[in-house]
Design a binder for these strands. Structure first.
Lengths: 197, 197
DNA sequence: ACACGATTTTGACGTACGTACAATCAAGTG
DNA sequence: CACTTGATTGTACGTACGTCAAAATCGTGT
């Protein structure tokens, strides 16, 4: 394993354990077993390394979410939302580190053009893919505007639930309830709905 | 205006303009026109001041959201979701500073018990109030579990849209589309729905 | 064996950091 | 006025910071 990879891994660990603001170049060197000056050699600066590590973590989390939501595409269309929310909520505890690192990335977006542009592009792509998956159609087989709406909403749910999870991991309702809440929010006044009421 | 208040205001300005990680005690002193040593006197430490400023901003943003969503309570129940989303999205550009400061607060939650507990409590309360407002009922007149689901979903939408707004302010759909997307997501296959399709 | 580019290691430099402490000031109280 | 209490200011301490230059080491082709 090259020092470059070690440093990226160490930077991510620091991102999760100490946060962006409290991580020093020496922390990364120690956490990665590499040497302080290698940061400058491989990444130019400590901030560049941190941003890269944050982006990498965000990207990985995106992959996890994609897998989780993709599971819903196979489901009965009626159950699709419920499955997607359940999978999403179930994945959060196992991916806490990635979620924390992603919140650190979001917080840096406002102050670094590179990281903001990368996150914006990732967000755009996530919306498209999430929309396609939730609707169970191909990416190309969508009305662009409508898909953007669906993708934005699903992405907002993902990010919003992730933030709430970081703030208070034990107070999130389960997927059934979240799905039911979305239906109710949409004005779904079906007399039966579910058995939880 | 006391130096205490000046420092809080200056800390918030720095939070928005430089971010949590890049703000130094001297930045705050300069931005507030106060003296460096006053930070320790009034707040104990620079981090304590920053956390307080971040929490204050989050709380103010919560008030703004509350006002925006409350406007939907007066609306026709059928239009309620659409009004709430429109008001929410319309408020974002005017509150960009508060939104940015809030993302900074979220990013610190994992690493400071005080700020995490405060944000978790604010989140809990926001869910309850948002649920009551969106449903147009009194806070006490709700099934606790169902309200928690609704509140969680609305809160997730608020936070999720805010994050997307920070990443890319120009790519958010309007309230109509977001509301329509929620309906579609919920399986709302009404043949008419709205004119956007 | 040698050369040479890429990487790793050493060491240190200059600086900017947060905080502590004493001095000073402003108001209130007898 | 003398005294107390709280707020503000001036200053400096010790340290931890990010970065760099140069030396050492490695890898590989010849």
């Amino acid at each position: 394993m090259s020092q470059r990879e070690d440093l990226l891994a160490g930077a991510r660990r620091c991102l999760v354990e100490k946060g962006y603001s409290r991580t020093t170049a020496r922390d990364i060197a120690t956490a990665s077993g590499s040497h302080l000056a290698s940061i400058g050699y491989h990444f130019g600066s400590k901030d560049a390394l941190m941003n890269l590590a944050a982006l990498e973590a965000q990207s990985e989390w995106g992959d996890v979410i994609e897998r989780a939501v993709r599971a819903s595409a196979d489901a009965d269309p009626v159950q699709r939302l419920r499955v997607a929310m359940t999978e999403l909520l179930a994945s959060l505890p196992h991916q806490r580190e990635l979620v924390v690192a992603t919140t650190q990335a979001y917080a840096q977006a406002e102050f670094g053009d590179d990281i903001r542009v990368a996150l914006a592009e990732a967000s755009r792509q996530a919306r498209t893919e999430l929309a396609a998956m939730v609707l169970g159609r191909d990416t190309t087989d969508l009305d662009a505007d409508a898909a953007d709406g669906i993708g934005t909403v699903v992405h907002a749910m993902v990010v919003g639930l992730a933030v709430q999870f970081v703030l208070s991991p034990d107070t999130l309702p389960d997927g059934d309830r979240v799905a039911a809440a979305i239906v109710e929010l949409a004005g779904g006044d079906h007399s039966d709905s579910n058995g939880a009421a």
